[in-house]
């Protein structure tokens, strides 16, 4: 797993390095009063990243140890929580903080462990309400509170 990851990562890093080198060629090469323009630093770094990723690629190929100890990963709760977080982020500005946070927390609490439903509801409601009250009413911060069509 780790070695495969390293190979893929080295190619990704290589691509990033090349992109930065190419990108830095489009930046004007000098600024007024200085011989060193804004393009040098990213250019050199991009080059460094390319060199390092090539090295990583060879390192990954060299150490082909047979690491067969597969850990059991809990993908299901992770994916549910990930999707819930994504939805939470995307709907935060339209539906507002209080409702989305409440739903998000409730879903996640129940995903982590399917028990204590009433406790989960109480904690989610208390958290979202309290944070909103403290931040907006006490600290006068900005947070989209309720749905925009409200």
């Amino acid at each position: 797993m780790a070695i495969k990851f390293d190979r893929v990562a080295s190619i990704v890093f290589l691509a990033v390095g090349v992109l930065f080198i190419v990108g830095s060629r489009h930046i004007s090469s000098s600024s007024y009063g200085s011989v060193v323009g804004p393009d040098i630093f990213p250019f050199v770094l991009g080059g460094l990243l390319v060199l390092l990723s090539i090295r990583l690629f060879f390192e990954a190929n060299q150490s082909k140890g047979a690491e067969g100890n597969k850990e059991k990963l809990e993908y299901k709760p992770f994916i549910i929580i990930f999707v819930a977080t994504l939805l939470y982020i995307l709907t935060l500005e339209t539906i507002g903080y209080v409702i989305t946070t409440f739903l998000f927390l409730l879903v996640c609490f129940q995903t982590m462990e399917r028990k204590k439903l009433i406790m989960s509801i109480i904690i989610s409601a208390a958290f979202s309400g309290l944070v909103y009250f403290l931040f907006v009413d006490v600290l006068k911060g900005t947070l989209p509170g309720w749905p925009i069509w409200f």
């Binding site: 982020i89 946070t101 996640c108 462990e113 900005t142």
Partner: peptide, 26 residues
Amino acid sequence: KQFLIPMIIAISIFGVYAVQVSMYDL
């Protein structure tokens, strides 16, 4: 952990949004 983990996610989202006020940052 049932309560702790989701709350950490919620706090980080709240925190970043409170400072940056931007969905892209989230």
